[in-house]
């Protein structure tokens, strides 16, 4: 396949993925917006007023970037894990596996499909958050870099989960038992400076803390962590997961008999 043909194949997968989550928007786009609206009402308006300022901002402004990032990463992950596993389950993945589309194009197509859903939900939640509070933009570059890298990372993680999963239960184990706790302890609702020193160190081992804080820095200009290390860590993470995913596609493990 020449580059033009590969580009067409990539756009085909991406278009299919976007059409899929747009077709079932009631299941994919609406729920995160409603959930985040509830967070804003409860933690922002009702409780937030009593908490006071955090990091120099009102509590609702402080939690807004974390909530947006939480929606982005969970939706990027969910999109790829459910779409790729469904394709594997229904065997429609064979359509692309029998074609001359190279493995890296298949992987990029599904990954960018996840990124597209992560960004769509991120934009919707951001618009909704503006109803409750005012958000400034400290750095467009950092904000977009972090949101893109994070959604790529979680799309790739979703892809690996889908390859290994044998049942629909197995695609919800990681989000429920790993992703959700790490997100809640990832500095979405608080600054780690409030924690005892030991728990601050433990918290720094949580990768989601770095993503949430880097994103918050892009919007508000405040962070508990070093932004350069966060970006570097994300780039390394994306590269590692991309290589692992590509290896899974190449060996055909759990995809080809």
């Amino acid at each position: 396949m020449n580059l033009t043909e590969q580009w067409i194949a990539f756009l085909t997968i991406l278009r299919k993925e976007i059409k899929r989550f747009a077709r079932i928007w009631v299941q994919t786009l609406l729920p995160p917006v409603i959930t985040m609206a509830l967070y804003f009402v409860i933690f922002g308006t009702l409780i937030g007023g009593r908490i006071g300022d955090m990091g120099g901002f009102s509590y609702i402004q402080f939690v807004a970037p974390g909530l947006i990032m939480m929606a982005v990463l969970t939706n990027a992950y969910s999109n790829v894990v459910s779409s790729f596993f469904s394709a594997k389950f229904q065997r429609s993945i064979e359509e692309v596996l029998v074609s001359p589309t190279p493995n890296y194009v298949i992987l990029l197509g599904y990954t960018m499909g996840g990124v597209a859903r992560g960004l769509s939900v991120g934009i919707l939640v951001t618009i909704m958050s503006l109803i409750f509070t005012h958000l400034q933009m400290h750095s467009w570059l950092i904000t977009l870099t972090i949101v893109l890298l994070t959604s790529m990372l979680f799309s790739l993680a979703g892809f690996i989960n889908a390859v290994y999963a044998n049942t629909f239960d197995e695609i919800s184990i990681v989000p429920t038992f790993i992703l959700t706790p790490l997100t809640y302890f990832g500095g979405v609702f608080y600054s780690i400076s409030l924690l005892p020193e030991m728990w601050q160190h433990v918290s720094r081992l949580n990768p989601i803390l770095h993503m949430v804080n880097a994103f918050r820095y892009g919007i508000l200009g405040v962070s508990d962590i070093n932004i350069t290390y966060a970006i570097l860590g994300l780039v390394i993470g994306v590269v590692i997961l991309f290589v692992v995913s590509l290896h899974l596609l190449k060996t055909g493990n759990r995809l080809r008999a």
Binding site: M1, N2, T4, E5, Q6, I8, A9, L11, T12, I13, R15, K16, K19, R23, S86, A87, Q90, R91, S92, E94, E95, V96, S99, P100, T101
Partner: peptide, 23 residues
């Protein structure tokens, strides 16, 4: 065995396959 996405439209299924071949 049938190996297409049952929720997709007939035309989309064939169009997508064409896309995978770079048409």
């Amino acid at each position: 065995e049938f190996n297409f996405n049952l929720f997709e439209k007939v035309e989309d299924i064939v169009m997508q396959q064409a896309g995978y071949y770079g048409l």
